[in-house]
């Protein structure tokens, strides 16, 4: 069977706005990706454990509550601690431009803010295998 890239789309923390996550999930499906969706209000541990059991290639985090600087890097850290060295983490939501460099420095591979064309997310997703290769070298 051909390999398919598997992506977990998850919403950490307490905000309940999942339209963005669902739109991205759908766009990724239509581009041929297998998307696992967890629903809203997940803890970091739940997301990490789900990513591990599903053996996804990437985790996409959607967050609109403002807690991205805390939660996004925490997901990366816990994944690495759990031994998932090569799972790519990216994120999206209402994220102020000033915060983006911090997130990129802390292991988030890409950040997509409102208005991003879906094709941009898809293009990014196509590069996931390359990014994994890089992670395997680094970690």
């Amino acid at each position: 069977m051909e390999r398919r890239i598997r992506i977990l789309i998850a919403k950490p923390g307490l905000d309940g706005h999942d339209r963005g996550a669902k739109v991205v999930a759908r766009a990724l499906r239509d581009a041929g990706f297998e998307v696992i969706y967890t629903g809203r209000r997940q803890t970091v541990d739940q997301i990490v454990e789900t990513a591990i059991q599903e053996d996804v290639d990437a985790v996409g985090l959607s967050l609109l509550s403002g807690a991205h600087n805390t939660l996004f890097p925490k997901v990366v850290r816990k994944l690495r601690e759990r031994g998932a060295k090569d799972i790519v983490v990216f994120g999206g939501g209402v994220i102020p431009p000033d915060d983006i460099p911090f997130l990129l420095e802390n292991g988030i591979a890409a950040v997509f803010t409102p208005g991003t064309p879906l094709s941009e997310v898809v293009e990014f997703a196509k590069k996931i295998p390359e990014l994994q290769e890089q992670l395997r070298k680094e970690n």
Binding site: R26, R29, A31, G32, V35, Y37, T38
Partner: peptide, 9 residues
């Protein structure tokens, strides 16, 4: 597309 949304979880 060959893609899927897996939502049973």
């Amino acid at each position: 597309s060959g893609g899927a949304i897996l939502g049973d979880r």
